[in-house]
Design a binder for these strands. Structure first.
Length: 1075
RNA sequence: GCGCGGUUAGCUCAGUGGUAGAGCAUUUGCUUCACACGCAAGGGGUCGCAGGUUCAAACCCUGCACCGCGCACCA
């Protein structure tokens, strides 16, 4: 530290050292290293993102862990990167292009051109956050920076998709999905947040067609969907309405339609709650999940009235057509009013699902999407439940477990351009199927039904009546035993398609008697599935015969699950592609089957659905041949993020990095993405690496402002971390955030925290400056015989601090660690030790001065290292400036504090050699307590701090002269007279301490008022003492207490009583001395 | 509705059965030769409420209230 400025100036230090670290390649992880590995992957921030306080919190923790691990001698990989963030990025770029006037809509450019623009934007403006992380001091291995759209990474994503497809875990289906009318894409359930919305419940009446003059009143929050209503439902048990079931009502909208086209049936459905509203429910199968189910049960038509963009379509009628859905709501109410149908409207609050990103209400919408049935679920669930993977704080394990226990299939397709395009190809040449379907026949047994409900009932009846449940059946062709579990039936019924429902109950029968079975080589097994066998069968639908391909999964205990099958509908009599009748020949080696459709489709919809798509479907990365077109959708961004821990390490080719650093040690992330990311990474880790992706997960709190509100742009309450760094320094920001971030709690952010960090850095700086001002080289050897009680005290305190901080870090208690460091350094080292050393430095004993410097150097060199993970910049500056680097080997702190060893607690040999007995904590502690008391006396006497005064000490035991000198200095006294026979004159203030009585003779200097005030104060204190004595005495007087209390506690109570009694005596004496 | 957290000084929070704590804020006094981004000394709490267990409860149990979060939801 050649130039010593009075205050620490981070700006002149931080960039210099960061560049130094980069130049030295200190962040680069060596996969060949012999050191034990420590690894952590960054939660990839959005490539469009800018640094927020949330990132600061998160990445500071990771940096602390990484830097600490380096100091522990580990080979550290902190792997950084960014996420392509499909919706967010596409929106940002789209908005930017619109602003520049380049486009009005993304369609103006077309997919290719638009993607070019996105890449351009990404390369020019993306990744700002990476530069910002550097400002924060993040010690990431930037040579390994990854982006989820990197070619290698994209290939991993595609590979995984194809693999899951082949395992039968990915399927396509037409389902009700969460549709975002702003982003024009489907969303997963996790991307929908429920929000309370204030609105109205509208009551309108409809006439029963068969009984003129009879009206039903319906309550709804969505009158704009009336044109899409295809029934009115009541509970069949509701006495008010049951008799009306089967009759019809006249739907009021659209106004212009003739009455006969607006007749919709009154149906009975148990789903209807007759407590709610009027007990009459309008059913809009196209725009409500529950209504869709009702529609499926009652074979209702599905009339879509809201288009993908949230505007009403033609079917909504002339009045609503083209209007936004919310505007349409108002107009619909007006129309109802005009018709005289509106009875009333009352304010109503309900929960509405919002798109998390676009912050608009989502629209349930029937559409064709890709779904994933999660892999490796049981293992992933068990590893956390059993505590093999630890969550910190562990209450998140319960949340995780709950979610894992009720997994819904993941909608992975997005109708966007920016992202990984789904690696599925469709061939042309599909011939349309006839839509005439009368019944379904499974050879030998009929399971007839026109919709799922009927089929399901038939299937259950069939399974029951044939005693199939729990039975084993021998397949005569393959000689395999097939057992039907109840679970497999339920599973199939609840999760899979119509075809599955048809097949499962009949399957053993098919295998036994009728089906012409072929087998295929099994597909790549996962750990929980030994093999997947493929069979073909025939299915007759009306006059057509279809080939059906289905799959049987074989589990380790020989349990067989018919949980996925691909249905291939084929017209038997014509269109045989090559005339080859063998079923195998119909299905090329690659996956060509088309998975079953959604569970709630009508059969005719299934056929329609199949017709609407190309026949041949293959999932593979490269196009199979010419004339094959790729699925236009891209994958959910999280479908790439969930591979992050291993895809970033070069999976599957580069084995060395993976071998060294996978599984990673820690993951640091926010609890808000526990389902989005953490849970999915665990499942992917098991599925593809056969091992958990990380050993520990640390969940940070969420940063809020000091009023407890979430940080948000619109509130303007999110300070820019870069501004804070510029104003206070990166170390200050890190320290401030860490101090305010207890494990598992939300963090209420206040700039004062950062200010405190800045002040702390300044304190550290000045403490070192003080050391430098005493001169001399770095002192190595400490001479045990020259150690004062102060020296021993601070060494013991250092020892305690090392232990405390190390334990806190091991337990991920960062705020405890910073609090311990703060307390030790400021409250113990600076406040007491440094002040005490002035007695040495202001004196003339040169040997003692040198020895004190040695102690200071010992303490500071340890302290600076302990601070390094928290305050990387200032500690590096001090490490070099103070000369502590010079004595160290190059790879252990000689070059950089980054590799200096983490301080070890002082061992017994060390303590023995230097005479560091715990009694010195008491001895020096008593001394400092005496000083506090003495200062208190001065204050009571109203004597200003600067004024030199005289104290008298009547010691209990001998006190070394050096200690008396320390006391004198700390009291800022002219003299401290040691006098065993001191008789205090009247008006002398006294304090009782462990070391003896301390007096502040005032020699009549005080006014009567001052004396009176003093007397009042002592009297007050006496009262408190009496109260304490009474409390303890009462306890001791209780016979039950004396009988049952453990001896140690009794001892403690008696001792406490004795202390209070002595204090009382002293206070009484003091009172006497004052009067 | 179900579940999980929380309720301790003005604020933010520690505190796993035996004397209620820290930081900030506040009051007062100090430009004391490392630091005013500082030093020193104070004031300030029925530990959410009500029961129970115990010699002893902020702490364990039960119930309630309020706040926050998650999940599931009735139009």
């Amino acid at each position: 530290m050649s130039e010593i400025s009075k205050a620490y100036e981070p700006q002149s230090v931080e960039d210099k050292w960061y560049q130094f670290w980069l130049d030295g390649k200190f962040f680069v992880a060596d996969a060949q290293s012999a050191k034990p590995a420590y690894s952590i992957v960054i939660p990839p921030p959005n490539v469009t993102g800018v640094l927020t306080l949330g990132h600061v919190l998160n990445n500071t923790i990771q940096d602390i862990l990484a830097r600490k691990a380096r100091m522990d001698g580990k080979e550290v990989l902190w792997l950084p990167g960014t996420d392509h963030a499909g919706i967010a990025t596409q929106t940002v770029v789209e908005r930017a292009l619109k602003k520049e006037g380049k486009i009005k809509h993304r369609d103006d450019l077309g997919r290719e051109k638009f993607l070019e623009e996105v890449w351009k934007w990404k390369n020019e403006k993306g990744g700002i956050i990476i530069q910002q992380l550097k400002k924060l001091g993040a010690s990431c291995d930037w040579t390994r920076e990854r982006f989820t759209m990197d070619p290698e990474y994209s290939r991993c994503v595609q590979r995984v998709f194809v693999d899951l497809y082949k395992k039968g875990l990915i399927y396509r289906g037409k389902r009700m999905v969460n549709w975002c009318p702003a982003s024009l894409t489907a969303l997963s359930d996790e991307e929908v947040v429920m929000k309370e919305q204030k609105g109205f419940l509208y009551y309108f009446k409809v006439e029963v067609a068969e009984i003129p003059g009879t009206f039903l009143t319906i309550a709804t929050t969505r009158p704009e969907t009336i044109p899409g209503d295809t029934a009115v439902a009541v509970n069949p048990k509701d006495p008010r309405y049951a008799h009306l079931i089967g009759k019809h009502v006249v739907r009021p909208l659209p106004v212009e339609l003739p009455r006969e086209q607006k007749l919709i049936p009154i149906i009975g459905d148990e789903h209807v709650d007759f407590e709610f509203g009027t007990g009459v429910l309008k059913v809009t199968p196209a725009h409500d999940k529950a209504d869709f189910e009702i529609g499926a049960r009652h074979k209702l038509a599905t009339v879509e009235v809201i288009a993908a963009n949230g505007q009403m379509n033609d079917a909504a009628g002339a009045d609503l057509r083209g209007l936004d859905r919310f505007k349409a709501r108002k107009v619909a109410v007006e129309k109802l009013t005009e018709l005289g149908a509106l009875e009333k409207e009352e304010p109503y609050t309900n929960n509405v699902g919002f798109s998390e990103r676009a912050d608009v209400p989502i629209e349930p919408r029937l559409s064709e999407q890709w779904f994933l049935k999660y892999p490796s679920v049981e293992k992933s669930r068990a590893v956390v439940a059993k505590g093999e993977m630890k969550f910190h704080p562990d209450r998140w394990a319960k949340v995780y477990d709950h979610w894992m226990g009720s997994l819904q299939d993941w909608c992975v397709s997005r109708q966007l351009w920016w992202g990984h395009r789904i690696p599925v190809w469709y061939s042309e040449g599909w011939k349309k199927l006839s839509q005439k379907i009368v019944f379904v026949r499974l050879t030998g047994h009929e399971l007839a039904g026109r919709n799922v409900k009927e089929l399901r009932e038939a299937a259950f009846t069939f399974a029951k009546s044939h005693g199939i449940l729990g039975q084993s059946f021998l397949n005569l062709d393959s000689h395999q035993n097939i057992t039907v579990h109840k679970a497999s039936l339920e599973h199939a019924f609840s999760n899979f398609g119509v075809a599955n429902v048809k097949l499962v109950p009949g399957l053993p029968d098919l295998l036994r008697h009728a089906v012409k079975v072929a087998s295929e080589p099994h597909l790549p097994p996962s750990e929980s599935v030994i093999s997947v066998e493929t069979y073909f069968s025939a299915l007759q639908v009306g006059d057509q015969i279809f080939r059906v391909k289905f799959r049987v999964k074989v589990f380790p205990d020989n349990f067989r699950l018919y949980d996925h099958q691909a249905v291939m509908l084929w017209r038997e009599k014509e269109n045989e592609p090559d005339g080859n009748k063998s079923p195998e020949a119909q299905f090329p080696k690659e996956q060509t089957s088309r998975p079953a459709s959604g569970s709630t489709l009508l059969l005719r919809d299934l056929v329609q659905d199949v017709n609407s798509d190309p026949a041949f479907t293959r999932s593979q990365i490269e196009p199979p041949a010419e004339n094959w077109v790729q699925d236009p959708d891209v994958l959910d961004t999280w479908f790439s993020s969930w591979l992050w821990p291993f895809a970033t390490m070069g999976w599957p080719e580069q084995a060395d990095t993976l071998k060294k650093f996978y599984p990673t040690t820690d993951l640091v992330t926010g609890p808000d993405i526990i389902f989005f990311w953490v849970a999915r990474m665990i499942m992917a880790g098991y599925e593809y690496m056969g091992a958990l992706p990380f050993q520990n997960v640390y969940f940070t709190g969420i940063i809020r402002d000091k009023q407890g509100r979430k940080m948000s742009k619109s509130l303007g309450n999110s300070p820019d971390p870069l501004d804070l760094i510029a104003k206070f320094g990166a170390d200050a920001l890190r320290f401030g955030v860490m101090r305010a971030a207890p494990l598992g709690q939300d963090i209420l952010f206040d700039e004062q925290n950062v200010e405190l960090g800045r002040n702390f850095c300044n304190k550290l700086w000045n403490a070192c400056r003080f050391r430098q001002m005493q001169g001399g080289e770095v002192q190595g050897e400490i001479e045990p015989t020259l150690l004062s009680s102060d020296d021993k005290w601070i060494l013991l305190k250092l020892d305690a601090a090392i232990r405390e901080v190390t334990i806190a870090l091991n337990e991920y208690k960062f705020s405890d660690a910073t609090a311990a460091l703060y307390r030790f350094f400021w409250g113990e080292y600076c406040d007491w030790y440094v002040e005490a050393t002035k007695a040495v430095f202001f004196g003339t004993d040169e040997k003692r001065k040198a020895n004190t410097l040695a102690v200071i150097d010992f303490v500071l060199s340890h302290t600076v290292r302990m601070f390094h993970p928290f305050l990387p910049f200032i500690t590096e500056e001090l490490w070099h400036g103070m000369g502590y680097a010079t004595d160290m080997p190059d790879n252990q702190g000689g070059k950089t504090i980054m590799f200096a060893p983490w301080p070890m607690p002082l061992d017994e040999d060390f303590k023995g050699h230097y005479g560091l007995d715990d009694c010195y904590l008491e001895i020096a502690g008593a001394k400092y307590e005496l000083v506090s008391q003495g200062r208190n006396l001065r204050r009571e006497a109203n004597i200003s701090t600067g004024k030199k005064i005289k104290y008298v000490l009547k010691p209990v035991n001998f006190l070394p002269p050096h200690d008396v000198e320390v006391i004198r200095l700390l009291l800022n006294a002219e003299t401290v007279e040691v006098n065993e026979n001191f008789q205090p004159p009247k008006g002398t203030l006294t304090a009782r301490t462990e070391l003896g009585e301390l007096y502040l003779p005032l020699e009549g200097l005080r006014t009567p008022e001052e004396l009176a005030a003093e007397k009042a104060r002592v009297a007050n204190e006496l009262d408190k003492i009496e109260a304490e004595i009474a409390k303890v005495e009462q306890k001791l007087a209780n016979p039950k207490f004396m009988e049952k209390v453990p001896p140690a506690v009794l001892q403690e109570h008696s001792q406490r009583l004795a202390e209070w009694l002595a204090k009382r005596d002293h206070a009484k004496a003091a009172l006497g001395a004052l009067s």
